[in-house]
């Protein structure tokens, strides 16, 4: 089943059950965070490195590789 989430306002389609990182990667995005001015995306993929964190429905620092995407989730990029 298809789910719809938004990333910085853009609609992104994913498959039900995928992680937020999985949905974003499948949509062709490689990075969704800025660290010291440089782009970052998924790195460890198993919840250890904290590199892939995003803001989900207003809550910051959520690991995209671990959180299952839910229909309607609003994802925002984080900058530090």
């Amino acid at each position: 089943m298809t789910i719809r989430i938004s990333f910085d306002g853009d609609e992104v389609l994913g498959r039900e059950g995928q992680t937020i990182a999985g949905v974003l990667l499948a949509s062709g995005r490689r990075s969704w965070r800025t660290a010291d001015g440089e782009e970052r995306g998924v790195f460890c993929g198993i919840g250890v490195c904290q590199d892939c964190v995003v803001t989900v429905n207003g809550v910051g620092s959520v690991r995209a590789c671990q959180r299952t995407a839910c229909d309607g989730d609003a994802i925002e990029r984080e900058v530090r």
Binding site: R15, Q18, T19, A21, G22, L25, A26, R30, S31, E39, R40, G41, V42, F43, C44, G45, I46, C65
Partner: peptide, 17 residues
Amino acid sequence: PGVTTAGAAQALAKRDG
């Protein structure tokens, strides 16, 4: 971006397809 651990590549393939 595009550099991950081997485990991440494995997890994304297995868990997310």
